[in-house]
Design a binder for these strands. Structure first.
Length: 760
DNA sequence: AGCACGCCGACT
DNA sequence: GTCGGCGTGCTC
C-alpha cells in the first residue's frame, strides 16, 4: 500500500543545485492520532537515517508553535523540494511496534471505519506496549577485553578479578547486583573496573518481574466424528494451498466446532505458523484457555483483565514469533504475529466483536481483511451465524460447512413456546408461569438441574406512578429507573444515577409509586418461595462483581450444590452442564420488541443458544420459552431448530426493508446538552451530506435525522441519522468527499458508526 | 483534534 | 479605544 496522497505543497521543479543534496535526503511519512487524513513529511536527522523504520513512533514539531507531538512513521518518501520541511525531533521506539502487515491493516481500518490512520494505529496498540509497562531501563556490564589485556588480568585486586571471573562465567552482560552476588563482593570492585574502562556499560530495557509459568498438563487430540472430519478436510484445503478463503462453520450447539478449530490449528502450527482464535470476552474462561493450553506448547492469552505489564509481555512474546496460538477477545485480532497462518472467530454472531468506541470496527471484518492481506483462511464458527455471514456463504463468496449433529450423538432438546397471555400466574405478575413451574418441579425432583434465563437485571425494571400514569425516569436519561431491592436503590441502567426509592411521585406528588415488571432479583425471590427445598443461584452483573465469582458460581452449579441457576445473557452462552434437563426462557419478548432491524435475529439466536444448554447427556432435556407472541417467525423457527428456515424468511424481509446485509449503513450519532442545538446541528449536517450525495451522484440514501431511541443519555440529548448504500465504499466515498466541509460546533459532538449493531 | 488568526459586542 | 466571544482554516 502507498501512503495516502498528501497535499502537494511543492509542485515547482527543483533547482539543479538542490538535486545533489536530495540524493541522500530521506523523509519520513508520519501520521498522528488526530482526525486528519493526511500523512506529514519530516526530514530524518542524519543520526537516524537508514535506521528509522516504519512502525516506530517519532516526536515531531507540529503546527505553528512547533509543539512536539508523537506520531507514527508509516513509510518514507523523497519529495522534490525539501526546503520547507521540518526535521523530526526524536525516535521513540528502538524497534517498530508493528510490522508492515499491521500498518496496512490499520490504514484499511481508517478508510473503512472513517477515522484517520493515526487514530486506528493508536487504538490498536495497547497502552502497556506504548509505555513499556513492566520494564525498566537497566545498566549492564560486560568485559572490554582489549582494555583488560592492556591492564593485565593478573594485576587486578582479588575482588576485581572475581568480578571478571563472574562475568566470564555468565557469558552475557550482567547487572551490578548479579555480579555482586556471584562474585560475593560489594559494588566497589564493579565501579572500580568501570572507572578503569575495563567494564563496558550498556543500558537496555528489561522486564521487572519474571513471568509466572504454571505448567498445564498436555492432552491428546480427540477423535473426530465423520462430520467433523469432513469439515476439517474442507478447512485443510485452503490451508495447504495457502490461499485466502472464508469458511463459515455452521454447527449446532454441541457439535464440536472447537475440536475442528484445534485440529486445523495443529496443521498451521506444523508449518511453523501461528493462529489467532477470537472468542467473545464472556467465554474467555479458564476452561476455554486451558482447553487450548493443554493442546499446544505455547499459547498467549489476551483478555481485558490483563494488567498493562502482562499485556505488554504477551505482545512481545507474540511478536518474537515464540507463540503458536493467540486466544483472545476482540482486540486480539491485532495480535502482532510474525507468520500468521489462520484466524478463527468462534461464536461469530456475538455483538461483542463490534467495538463501541472509535474506530468502531467489527473484529470479524478486520479479521477478514487481515486474512485477505495475508493470504490465509478465516474460519467463522457459530450455531446461529449472522445474516451477514450466512448471506455471503449462500452467494458463494464464502464456503459453508455444516455440522448437523451433536458429537455425543444426542438429539437437540425439544423446544416449546409457552403462550403466557392466558397464564393466570403471568397475568397477575409472576415470572414463572404454570408450565415452567410444573417442569421445574419435575426436573429437580428427578435429580436434574434447571437454568432460567431472564434478560433483565434488578428487581423491577419499571417504577410507575399510579396517579399520573407516568414511569419514573432518570433525571439524566430517558430511561425508567429499575428498583434494586437488595441495595434498596432505584437505579438507572445507562448512567450512574441511583436514589432512594421515591415514596411519592416526583411528577405529581402522589404517594402512588408502584413497582412493575420482573428482573432477576424478583425471579430469584419467586423461585425461592416456590421451591424452598432447592438451592437457587442468581448470576447477573450485580452478583458477579468480584473477580472469580463467575468461576465460583459455575463450579457450585457443576458440583450440583445448586439446582436452579438463573441469570441474564451471561448464562446463555457456551456453558456445558450434562445434568441440566430443563432450560426456561422467562421472557422471550424483551429483545423481540426492540425497535431494531435485528430484533428477530437476536431473539432466534438467544433461544437457540439458551436451548443448547439443555440435553447434554443421556438424561435428555427440554426447553420452555415463555412469550406473548408465540406466532412470531423468530420464535416458531427457533422452537423447530430451523436456522435455515428462519434465515430464508428473514433475509427476504431484510431485502424488502433495504437493510443489512443487503445495504450497508453508517449511523451518525450527535449529542449535546441543549436539545435545540443538537436538532439544528444534525439538520445542517444532514443537509450537507444529502446535497453532496445528489451532486456527486453517489447512490446513498440518507435517513433522518430523528431523535435517537434513547433520546437523553447522561444529560446529553441525542439525535441521529443514517447513510445507507449497497456498497460500503459508496458511503466511504461520500463521507471522505465532505469530511472537511462538514459544519462544526463547539456544543454538539458526533460520532460515526459504520455497520452499526447497537441502534440505541 | 488543537491552535492561531480574525472580526464584532460590552467594558476601562 | 481594548478584552474576549467562538467561527474558520491549517497543520509537513
Amino acid at each position: 500500500m502507498t501512503p495516502p496522497a498528501q497535499q502537494q505543497l511543492f509542485d515547482d521543479d527543483p533547482l539543479p543545485w538542490e538535486l545533489a543534496a536530495e540524493e541522500d535526503v530521506e523523509c519520513a511519512e508520519v501520521v498522528f492520532n488526530r482526525p486528519m487524513e493526511q500523512a506529514f513529511s519530516y526530514l530524518v536527522p542524519e543520526a537516524w537515517r537508514g535506521k528509522l523504520r516504519a512502525g516506530q513512533r517519532v516526536r515531531c514539531p507540529f503546527g505553528r508553535g512547533n509543539r512536539p507531538l508523537t506520531g507514527y512513521c508509516v513509510g518514507f518518501s523523497r519529495p522534490k523540494n525539501t526546503g520547507k520541511l521540518k526535521s523530526l525531533l526524536e525516535v521513540i521506539d528502538r524497534e517498530p511496534l508493528l510490522n508492515q502487515h499491521m500498518l496496512d491493516l490499520t490504514q484499511w481500518i481508517g478508510e473503512r471505519y472513517l477515522c484517520s490512520w493515526g487514530q486506528a494505529l493508536n487504538t490498536i496498540i495497547p497502552a502497556g506496549v506504548k509505555n513499556y509497562a513492566g520494564t525498566r531501563m537497566r545498566t549492564y556490564f560486560s568485559i572490554d577485553e582489549e582494555a583488560l589485556a592492556r591492564v593485565g588480568e593478573t594485576n587486578l585486586p582479588t575482588k576485581q578479578a572475581a568480578v571478571i571471573a563472574a562475568l566470564r562465567a555468565a557469558k552475557e552482560p550482567l547487572q551490578s547486583k548479579e555480579i555482586e552476588q556471584s562474585a560475593d563482593c560489594g559494588s566497589g570492585p564493579v565501579n572500580g573496573l568501570k572507572n578503569k574502562g575495563i567494564l563496558r556499560v550498556t543500558r537496555r530495557r528489561a522486564a521487572t518481574s519474571p513471568p509466572s509459568t504454571d505448567a498445564v498438563e498436555r492432552e491428546q487430540d480427540l477423535t473426530l466424528n465423520p462430520e467433523q472430519l469432513t469439515a476439517l478436510e474442507k478447512i485443510l484445503q485452503p490451508l495447504r494451498s495457502q490461499k485466502h478463503e472464508t469458511l463459515l462453520l455452521h454447527g449446532v450447539t454441541g457439535s464440536g466446532k472447537t475440536e475442528v478449530y484445534i485440529q486445523a490449528i495443529r496443521e498451521v502450527v506444523s508449518y511453523g505458523r501461528q493462529a489467532i482464535v477470537l472468542v467473545p470476552e464472556i467465554s474467555l474462561t479458564p476452561q476455554t484457555i486451558r482447553r487450548f493450553e493443554s493442546r499446544f506448547d505455547s499459547v498467549a492469552v489476551l483478555h481485558s483483565h490483563l494488567t498493562d505489564a502482562e499485556r505488554h509481555r504477551q505482545w512481545k512474546l507474540i511478536s518474537s514469533g515464540n507463540v503458536q496460538v493467540v486466544v483472545g477477545a476482540r482486540s486480539a485480532v491485532f495480535a502482532p504475529t510474525t507468520h500468521l497462518g489462520l484466524i478463527v472467530i468462534d461464536e461469530e454472531h456475538e455483538t461483542t466483536f463490534k467495538q463501541e468506541t472509535t474506530p468502531r470496527y467489527h473484529a470479524r471484518e478486520v479479521a477478514r481483511q487481515r486474512a485477505k492481506m495475508a493470504g490465509i483462511p478465516l474460519i467463522l464458527g457459530s450455531a446461529t451465524p449472522t445474516l451477514e455471514s450466512y448471506a455471503r456463504a449462500r452467494r458463494g463468496i464464502d464456503q459453508l460447512i455444516t455440522l448437523k449433529k451433536r458429537v455425543s450423538d444426542l438429539p437437540l432438546p425439544p423446544v416449546s413456546a409457552v403462550d403466557v397471555r392466558n397464564d393466570p400466574r403471568c397475568v397477575s405478575g409472576s415470572g414463572i408461569g404454570r408450565a415452567i413451574q410444573t417442569a421445574i418441579r419435575a426436573a429437580v425432583e428427578d435429580g436434574g438441574q434447571v437454568i432460567l434465563f431472564l434478560n433483565v437485571r434488578g428487581h423491577s425494571p419499571v417504577l410507575w406512578c399510579k396517579a399520573c400514569g407516568e414511569g419514573i425516569k432518570c433525571p439524566n436519561c430517558d430511561i425508567t429507573l429499575t428498583w434494586h431491592k437488595d441495595r434498596h436503590l432505584a437505579m438507572c441502567h445507562t448512567c450512574e444515577f441511583a436514589i432512594d426509592p421515591p415514596k411519592t411521585c416526583p411528577r405529581c406528588g402522589h404517594a402512588a409509586v408502584r413497582y412493575f415488571g420482573i428482573g432477576t432479583q424478583r425471579l430469584e425471590e419467586e423461585v425461592a418461595a416456590k421451591f424452598p427445598r432447592y438451592k437457587c443461584l442468581r448470576m447477573d452483573s450485580d452478583t458477579m462483581r468480584k473477580r472469580g465469582s463467575y468461576e465460583t458460581a459455575l463450579d457450585a452449579f457443576r458440583k450440583g450444590e445448586v439446582q436452579i441457576l438463573l441469570g441474564t445473557q451471561m448464562i446463555a452462552k457456551g456453558l456445558d452442564f450434562p445434568n441440566v434437563t430443563l432450560v426456561g426462557v422467562i421472557d422471550a419478548d424483551t429483545i423481540l420488541h426492540q425497535p431494531d432491524i435485528r430484533a428477530a435475529e437476536r431473539t432466534f439466536q438467544l433461544i437457540a443458544q439458551v436451548a443448547g444448554r439443555a440435553g447434554r447427556s443421556s438424561k435428555g432435556g427440554r426447553v420452555l420459552v415463555q412469550t406473548s407472541s408465540p406466532d412470531e417467525p423468530a420464535i416458531q423457527f427457533a422452537t423447530a431448530h430451523d436456522y435455515v428456515g428462519f434465515v430464508h424468511a428473514e433475509i427476504q424481509h431484510r431485502r424488502e426493508m433495504q437493510a443489512p446485509p443487503f445495504w450497508h449503513l453508517a449511523r451518525v450519532i450527535l449529542r449535546g446538552l441543549i436539545d435545540d442545538e443538537v436538532v439544528e446541528f444534525s439538520n445542517s449536517m444532514a443537509t450537507v451530506l444529502r446535497k453532496a450525495a445528489e451532486e456527486s451522484d453517489l447512490p446513498v440514501r440518507l435517513l433522518g435525522p430523528a431523535p435517537a431511541p434513547i433520546m437523553k443519555l447522561n444529560k446529553f440529548y441525542r439525535h441521529h441519522f443514517q447513510l445507507a448504500a449497497e456498497q460500503a465504499e459508496t458511503i466511504q466515498k461520500l463521507w471522505r468527499s465532505v469530511a472537511t466541509k462538514l459544519p462544526k460546533s463547539s456544543n454538539v459532538e458526533y460520532v460515526v458508526d459504520v455497520d452499526p449493531l447497537n441502534m440505541r
